[in-house]
C-alpha cells in the first residue's frame, strides 16, 4: 500500500472516530483478561471505537511513527556519520525487551534516565550528533520504534540497587497531593479506577502503551507529556519534560505495571 494511500486511510478513520467520540459508559468490558496480579491495561478502559483503532494496523496512527522510526534508525546523522543501525543492526532483535526496562539508571552518570534521554545520549556520545528536541517527531519516531520491538513482552523496570532512591522519590510524588485541585495520582489511579471523571474512564494509569497516540492532540505523547496533562487538569505547575521528578515518577508508575505486556503504539482519546 502506498504511503499516501495509507495516510489518507488513517486520516479518514481518525476523523470518523473523532466524530463518534462518545465513549460507552461501562466498566472494563467482560472480555478484559483477569490476571493474578490484578493489573489491567489502559486499553480496556478505552472505548470500543478507540480500541478498534489501536488494533487495526492500517488505522493506528502510532504505527506511522513506528514506520518512520524504522527509517530514521538507519539514517546516518552527526559528524561520526553513524546511524543507530551502525551499532544495533536493524533493532528488531537488539532492541527486543530494551524499552521494557526504562527508565533506568545510567551507569556513567548515575542519573535516572528515560528512553528518549538514552536515545539522545547515544546520539551525542557515539554519533557525534545533536540531541533531538524533547517531544519532537523524530524523537517520538525513535522511541516508538524501540518500544514497539518489545510489543508483547512484559514491562520489567528495576527498582533495587542504584534505582532504589529514585523509586522511593517517585512513590512519594505519586502519593503527594498537588495543584489547586489538591489531587494525588493515587486518589484516581488506585482508589477510583473504573469510575468516570466526566467522560473519562479512570484507568490504573499504566505506561505499557507509550509513547501513545493521543487523538485529542493528534500526536504521539511521551509519558512525561501525559504527566503534564494530568498536572494541568489538577491546576498544578507542570514540570519540564525530562525533569528528574518526572523520571522518578515514571519509574514508580512503570513498576506498578511490571508484568503488563507492552502494546506500543497504544491509542487514546
Amino acid at each position: 500500500m502506498g504511503v499516501m494511500r495509507r495516510f489518507l486511510r488513517h486520516a479518514a478513520m481518525l476523523l470518523a472516530a473523532l466524530a463518534a467520540a462518545t465513549p460507552a459508559f461501562a466498566d472494563p468490558p467482560p472480555e478484559t483478561p483477569v490476571r493474578d496480579d490484578g493489573l489491567i491495561s489502559g486499553y480496556w478502559f478505552a472505548s470500543p471505537e478507540t480500541r478498534a483503532i489501536q488494533d487495526d494496523e492500517f488505522s493506528n496512527p502510532g504505527l506511522l511513527y513506528v514506520d518512520r522510526g524504522a527509517l530514521r534508525w538507519r539514517e546516518p546523522d552527526g559528524a561520526a556519520e553513524k546511524s543507530c543501525a551502525s551499532c544495533h543492526d536493524d533493532g528488531v532483535e537488539t532492541m527486543a525487551g530494551v524499552g521494557a526496562t526504562y527508565p533506568k539508571v545510567d551507569e556513567a552518570s548515575g542519573a535516572l534516565i528515560n528512553l528518549g534521554e538514552r536515545v539522545n545520549m547515544c546520539r551525542v556520545r557515539h554519533m557525534d550528533a545533536k540531541p533531538l528536541e524533547t517531544e519532537s517527531e523524530p524523537l517520538l519516531d525513535l522511541t516508538a520504534y524501540i518500544m514497539h520491538q518489545s510489543q508483547g513482552m512484559p514491562m520489567a523496570v528495576t527498582i533495587d540497587g542504584p534505582a532504589a532512591p529514585f523509586f522511593e522519590h517517585g512513590q512519594a510524588l505519586y502519593n503527594q497531593r498537588v495543584g489547586q485541585m489538591d489531587l494525588a495520582c493515587t486518589m484516581c489511579h488506585d482508589q477510583r479506577v473504573g469510575h468516570y471523571l466526566r467522560a473519562e474512564h479512570i484507568s490504573q494509569g499504566h505506561l505499557n502503551g507509550f509513547p501513545t497516540y493521543m487523538m485529542r492532540w493528534g500526536t504521539m505523547a511521551s509519558p512525561h507529556r501525559r504527566f503534564q496533562f494530568c498536572n494541568e487538569q489538577a491546576r498544578a505547575e507542570p514540570l519540564p519534560i525530562n525533569h528528574p521528578d518526572y523520571n522518578a515518577l515514571e519509574l514508580y508508575i512503570a513498576w506498578r505495571g511490571n508484568g503488563l505486556e507492552i502494546e506500543t503504539p497504544a491509542v487514546r482519546r
Partner: peptide, 24 residues
C-alpha cells in the same frame, strides 16, 4: 476527601502560578 476546596488558597502544594493565591 477528594473534593477540592473551591474557596481556599492555603494548604496546597505546587499550584500552577496562574492560579496561585487565587480561589478556584
Amino acid at each position: 476527601t477528594i473534593m477540592p476546596a473551591f474557596y481556599a488558597v492555603e494548604g496546597l502544594e505546587r499550584v500552577d502560578p496562574y492560579y496561585r493565591g487565587r480561589t478556584a
